[in-house]
């Protein structure tokens, strides 16, 4: 059974402007990136997956549950969403209780929640800062707290909205690692991002959103070879692919590592 099923999804906030114009998708366990210009409907789409918004037409089925029939709180144990700005969620005065907040809300008992929170904090590399005040930490670390606080809820599906915004190289690598770990634990990771190189290095599948529709859908290397469509969505392929194109090479590699591996004899 597919983890997420989306049938003929339409959505609009107001009558005159439709944001999503008929989306049909199936998500399996492949880690998936969603790319596209601002205003293409990416954030609205993940809010619909999360049940924060309900379809104006069509259905979103999360692990067998139609989001129309469940509240956000009911869906919370199945699907987690990490928001763009960690400052939108952090309110506790120490890291551990911040991360335990979600698990406690979805009905884990105190010891299980603590256990789960500690595991999540270890995964993101903050195990030594569990007693710190989140606002004494850097923005990058707060981002990791917000990721841990969703990971600790142990949901089958985890969505990240722009996890790499304002992050330096090291933090990006950390986030990439976390995504790969989650994937290896059998979770479905879906990420919205503007960073094409990050997509190329991290995700198996890529969706390109453009004006409320899915313009491209497929394996990440396939998607980044569709120059015409990417241009239409105002996106550029990753840097390695740009170099391949410029060199007129027959084979397009989308990451620096692949390029080097393939060309080294």
């Amino acid at each position: 059974m597919s983890i997420i099923e989306i049938n003929n999804l339409h959505f609009s906030y107001t009558k005159d402007e439709e944001i999503l114009k008929g989306i049909n998708l199936i998500f399996d366990e492949k880690s998936t990136a969603i790319i596209g210009q601002n205003g293409a409907g990416k954030t609205t789409f993940v809010k619909l997956l999360k049940g924060l918004l309900k379809p104006t037409w069509g259905d979103v089925i999360i692990d067998g549950k139609n989001t129309k029939e469940y509240t956000v709180a009911n869906l919370a144990p199945t699907i987690g969403l990490v928001f763009q700005n960690p400052n939108d969620q952090i309110f506790k005065n120490n890291v551990l209780s911040e991360v335990m907040f979600g698990p406690l809300n979805i009905g884990m008992d105190e010891s299980k929640a603590k256990d789960s929170a500690l595991k999540a904090l270890k995964m993101v590399g903050l195990e030594e800062k569990i007693n710190d005040n989140p606002y004494d930490l850097t923005l990058s670390e707060r981002k990791l707290i917000s990721i841990a606080s969703i990971v600790a809820m142990n949901t089958k599906i985890i969505i990240l909205d722009e996890p790499t915004i304002a992050q330096d190289y090291i933090s990006k690598e950390k986030i990439k690692d976390i995504i790969l770990k989650l994937k290896s634990q059998g979770k479905l990771v879906i990420t919205i991002t503007h960073d094409m190189d990050f997509v190329a290095e991290t995700f198996e599948r890529t969706l390109v959103f453009c004006e409320g529709r899915v313009l491209l859908d497929g394996k990440t290397d396939y998607v980044f070879m569709q120059d015409e469509e990417l241009k239409k969505a105002h996106l550029e392929p990753p840097y390695a692919a740009q170099l391949c194109r410029k060199l007129n090479s027959d084979k397009i590699y989308i990451t620096v590592e692949e390029f080097i591996k393939a060309n080294k004899r």
Binding site: I170, Y239, I260, N263, K264
Partner: peptide, 15 residues
């Protein structure tokens, strides 16, 4: 220093 070269530089460094 927590910094990485541009993608093109990394490729050229490798070769």
């Amino acid at each position: 220093y927590g910094v990485i070269e541009p993608a093109y530089t990394r490729i050229c460094k490798a070769f």
